[in-house]
Amino acid sequence: MMKSETTTIDVPESSSVAKGKAPLIGEVREHPSGGYKRGLSIFDFLIRVAAIVAALAAAATMGTSDETLPFFTQFFQFQASYDDLPTFQFFVIAMAIVAGYLVLSLPFSVVTIVRPLATAPRLLLLVLDTAVLTLNTAAASAAAAHSWKPNTNWLAICQQFGDFCQKTSGAVVSSFIAVVFFTLLVVISGVALKRH
Protein backbone atom coordinates (compact mmCIF):
# COMPACT_ATOMS: atom_id res chain seq x y z
CA MET A 1 0.00 0.00 0.00
CA MET A 2 1.21 3.42 -0.90
CA LYS A 3 1.09 6.21 1.53
CA SER A 4 -0.07 9.56 0.13
CA GLU A 5 1.76 12.61 1.30
CA THR A 6 0.17 16.01 1.59
CA THR A 7 1.92 19.29 1.66
CA THR A 8 0.45 22.33 3.40
CA ILE A 9 1.36 25.83 2.35
CA ASP A 10 0.55 28.67 4.74
CA VAL A 11 -0.74 31.75 2.95
CA PRO A 12 -0.99 34.87 5.09
CA GLU A 13 -4.21 36.80 5.02
CA SER A 14 -4.04 39.83 2.80
CA SER A 15 -5.61 43.12 3.63
CA SER A 16 -7.98 44.88 1.28
CA VAL A 17 -5.59 47.84 1.07
CA ALA A 18 -2.63 45.68 -0.03
CA LYS A 19 -4.61 44.08 -2.90
CA GLY A 20 -5.89 47.44 -4.10
CA LYS A 21 -9.50 46.76 -3.23
CA ALA A 22 -11.86 49.55 -2.28
CA PRO A 23 -11.64 50.60 1.37
CA LEU A 24 -14.39 49.65 3.76
CA ILE A 25 -17.05 52.19 4.63
CA GLY A 26 -15.62 54.66 7.12
CA GLU A 27 -12.04 53.70 6.26
CA VAL A 28 -10.00 56.59 4.87
CA ARG A 29 -6.92 55.98 2.81
CA GLU A 30 -4.44 58.84 2.85
CA HIS A 31 -2.31 59.32 -0.20
CA PRO A 32 1.34 58.80 0.85
CA SER A 33 2.47 62.04 -0.78
CA GLY A 34 0.02 64.18 1.19
CA GLY A 35 -2.45 64.88 -1.61
CA TYR A 36 -4.60 67.90 -0.84
CA LYS A 37 -2.37 68.90 2.10
CA ARG A 38 0.48 69.58 -0.31
CA GLY A 39 -1.85 71.79 -2.35
CA LEU A 40 -2.88 73.66 0.81
CA SER A 41 0.81 74.14 1.68
CA ILE A 42 1.58 75.60 -1.73
CA PHE A 43 -1.42 77.93 -1.41
CA ASP A 44 -0.19 78.88 2.09
CA PHE A 45 3.23 79.81 0.68
CA LEU A 46 1.72 81.98 -2.07
CA ILE A 47 -0.53 83.80 0.41
CA ARG A 48 2.48 84.45 2.66
CA VAL A 49 4.33 86.08 -0.23
CA ALA A 50 1.27 88.24 -1.01
CA ALA A 51 0.95 89.17 2.68
CA ILE A 52 4.62 90.21 2.75
CA VAL A 53 3.96 92.59 -0.14
CA ALA A 54 0.87 94.04 1.58
CA ALA A 55 2.61 94.48 4.96
CA LEU A 56 5.75 96.03 3.44
CA ALA A 57 3.63 98.34 1.31
CA ALA A 58 1.69 99.46 4.38
CA ALA A 59 4.83 100.10 6.45
CA ALA A 60 6.72 101.83 3.62
CA THR A 61 3.79 103.99 2.53
CA MET A 62 3.07 105.16 6.06
CA GLY A 63 6.78 105.62 6.81
CA THR A 64 7.26 107.90 3.82
CA SER A 65 4.06 109.89 4.28
CA ASP A 66 5.07 113.45 4.89
CA GLU A 67 4.09 116.67 3.21
CA THR A 68 5.26 120.24 3.61
CA LEU A 69 3.18 123.29 2.79
CA PRO A 70 5.06 126.56 2.24
CA PHE A 71 3.66 129.57 4.03
CA PHE A 72 4.90 133.08 3.18
CA THR A 73 8.59 132.25 3.26
CA GLN A 74 10.78 129.22 2.97
CA PHE A 75 11.60 129.44 6.66
CA PHE A 76 8.03 129.31 7.86
CA GLN A 77 6.34 126.09 6.72
CA PHE A 78 3.70 123.65 7.88
CA GLN A 79 4.65 119.99 7.82
CA ALA A 80 2.65 116.78 8.34
CA SER A 81 4.50 113.53 8.96
CA TYR A 82 3.63 110.09 10.31
CA ASP A 83 6.00 110.53 13.26
CA ASP A 84 3.93 113.48 14.50
CA LEU A 85 1.26 111.01 15.60
CA PRO A 86 1.99 108.15 18.04
CA THR A 87 -0.72 106.01 16.44
CA PHE A 88 1.02 106.14 13.07
CA GLN A 89 4.40 105.46 14.70
CA PHE A 90 2.93 102.31 16.26
CA PHE A 91 1.47 101.40 12.88
CA VAL A 92 4.85 101.58 11.11
CA ILE A 93 6.62 99.55 13.80
CA ALA A 94 3.86 96.92 13.99
CA MET A 95 3.64 96.48 10.22
CA ALA A 96 7.44 96.17 9.99
CA ILE A 97 7.28 93.41 12.64
CA VAL A 98 4.48 91.70 10.71
CA ALA A 99 6.49 91.82 7.46
CA GLY A 100 9.60 90.53 9.26
CA TYR A 101 7.67 87.64 10.75
CA LEU A 102 6.23 86.72 7.36
CA VAL A 103 9.70 86.59 5.83
CA LEU A 104 10.95 84.39 8.69
CA SER A 105 7.92 82.09 8.34
CA LEU A 106 8.63 81.26 4.69
CA PRO A 107 11.10 78.40 5.47
CA PHE A 108 8.50 76.75 7.71
CA SER A 109 5.96 77.06 4.93
CA VAL A 110 8.42 75.37 2.57
CA VAL A 111 8.82 72.53 5.09
CA THR A 112 5.05 71.98 4.99
CA ILE A 113 5.26 71.70 1.19
CA VAL A 114 8.09 69.16 1.33
CA ARG A 115 6.51 67.21 4.21
CA PRO A 116 2.77 67.88 3.98
CA LEU A 117 1.88 65.28 6.62
CA ALA A 118 4.14 66.84 9.30
CA THR A 119 2.01 68.50 11.95
CA ALA A 120 4.65 70.27 14.08
CA PRO A 121 5.57 73.03 11.58
CA ARG A 122 1.92 73.53 10.66
CA LEU A 123 0.90 73.85 14.33
CA LEU A 124 3.75 76.31 14.97
CA LEU A 125 2.64 78.43 12.01
CA LEU A 126 -0.97 78.34 13.20
CA VAL A 127 -0.07 79.63 16.68
CA LEU A 128 2.32 82.34 15.43
CA ASP A 129 0.01 83.42 12.60
CA THR A 130 -2.79 83.92 15.10
CA ALA A 131 -0.57 86.06 17.34
CA VAL A 132 0.70 88.19 14.46
CA LEU A 133 -2.83 88.50 13.07
CA THR A 134 -3.75 90.15 16.37
CA LEU A 135 -0.87 92.63 16.07
CA ASN A 136 -1.74 93.39 12.45
CA THR A 137 -5.40 93.95 13.29
CA ALA A 138 -4.51 96.21 16.23
CA ALA A 139 -2.23 98.38 14.10
CA ALA A 140 -4.71 98.65 11.22
CA SER A 141 -7.64 99.38 13.53
CA ALA A 142 -5.75 102.00 15.53
CA ALA A 143 -4.68 103.85 12.40
CA ALA A 144 -8.17 103.68 10.93
CA ALA A 145 -9.82 104.80 14.16
CA HIS A 146 -7.47 107.77 14.42
CA SER A 147 -9.15 109.49 11.50
CA TRP A 148 -12.59 109.11 13.09
CA LYS A 149 -11.68 110.74 16.40
CA PRO A 150 -13.49 114.07 16.70
CA ASN A 151 -10.54 115.82 18.35
CA THR A 152 -8.05 115.09 15.54
CA ASN A 153 -9.73 117.38 12.95
CA TRP A 154 -8.74 114.88 10.29
CA LEU A 155 -10.96 116.41 7.60
CA ALA A 156 -9.38 119.82 8.11
CA ILE A 157 -5.91 118.27 7.94
CA CYS A 158 -6.78 116.41 4.75
CA GLN A 159 -8.01 119.61 3.09
CA GLN A 160 -4.54 121.11 3.56
CA PHE A 161 -2.37 117.98 3.33
CA GLY A 162 -4.04 115.92 0.59
CA ASP A 163 -1.02 113.81 -0.35
CA PHE A 164 -0.34 112.97 3.28
CA CYS A 165 -3.92 111.77 3.78
CA GLN A 166 -3.89 109.72 0.58
CA LYS A 167 -0.69 107.94 1.60
CA THR A 168 -1.87 107.19 5.12
CA SER A 169 -5.23 105.97 3.84
CA GLY A 170 -3.49 103.71 1.31
CA ALA A 171 -1.29 102.30 4.07
CA VAL A 172 -4.32 101.50 6.22
CA VAL A 173 -6.09 99.78 3.31
CA SER A 174 -2.95 97.74 2.60
CA SER A 175 -2.75 96.69 6.26
CA PHE A 176 -6.36 95.47 6.18
CA ILE A 177 -5.54 93.45 3.05
CA ALA A 178 -2.74 91.84 5.10
CA VAL A 179 -5.35 91.05 7.79
CA VAL A 180 -7.43 89.20 5.19
CA PHE A 181 -4.37 87.24 4.08
CA PHE A 182 -3.57 86.29 7.69
CA THR A 183 -7.13 85.13 8.24
CA LEU A 184 -6.80 82.87 5.20
CA LEU A 185 -3.49 81.52 6.55
CA VAL A 186 -5.10 80.61 9.88
CA VAL A 187 -7.99 78.88 8.10
CA ILE A 188 -5.62 76.96 5.82
CA SER A 189 -3.55 75.77 8.78
CA GLY A 190 -6.68 74.68 10.61
CA VAL A 191 -7.93 72.71 7.61
CA ALA A 192 -4.50 71.12 7.05
CA LEU A 193 -4.31 70.02 10.69
CA LYS A 194 -7.74 68.42 10.57
CA ARG A 195 -7.60 64.62 10.73
CA HIS A 196 -10.12 62.47 8.95
Results as ranks from 00 to 15, higher is better:
3 K>H: 13
3 K>D: 11
3 K>Y: 05
6 T>C: 08
7 T>Q: 10
7 T>A: 06
7 T>P: 00
18 A>Y: 02
18 A>D: 12
21 K>D: 13
22 A>Q: 08
22 A>T: 12
24 L>E: 14
28 V>E: 08
30 E>W: 08
31 H>G: 05
34 G>W: 03
35 G>K: 04
37 K>Q: 06
39 G>A: 04
44 D>E: 08
46 L>I: 09
47 I>V: 15
50 A>E: 06
50 A>L: 08
54 A>N: 08
54 A>W: 00
55 A>Y: 02
58 A>D: 05
60 A>S: 06
61 T>W: 01
65 S>I: 02
65 S>C: 07
67 E>W: 02
67 E>G: 03
68 T>M: 12
73 T>Y: 10
74 Q>S: 12
79 Q>R: 13
79 Q>E: 10
83 D>F: 13
83 D>E: 11
84 D>R: 04
89 Q>D: 05
90 F>H: 13
92 V>C: 06
93 I>N: 04
93 I>D: 03
94 A>V: 03
94 A>P: 02
95 M>Y: 11
96 A>G: 14
96 A>Y: 07
99 A>G: 05
100 G>P: 04
100 G>L: 11
101 Y>G: 08
102 L>A: 09
103 V>F: 14
104 L>C: 14
111 V>Q: 11
112 T>V: 12
115 R>W: 04
115 R>Q: 09
116 P>A: 02
117 L>F: 09
118 A>N: 08
120 A>S: 14
120 A>Y: 07
121 P>G: 06
122 R>Q: 15
123 L>P: 09
124 L>H: 01
125 L>R: 09
127 V>F: 12
127 V>P: 04
128 L>Y: 10
131 A>S: 10
132 V>A: 09
137 T>Q: 15
137 T>G: 15
143 A>F: 12
144 A>R: 10
145 A>H: 07
148 W>M: 11
152 T>Y: 14
152 T>P: 00
157 I>T: 02
159 Q>E: 11
160 Q>E: 12
162 G>F: 05
166 Q>N: 14
166 Q>M: 11
167 K>D: 01
168 T>G: 00
170 G>F: 00
175 S>W: 06
179 V>P: 01
179 V>G: 01
181 F>R: 01
181 F>S: 12
181 F>V: 01
181 F>I: 00
185 L>R: 07
186 V>N: 10
186 V>M: 10
188 I>M: 03
193 L>F: 10
194 K>E: 00
195 R>C: 04
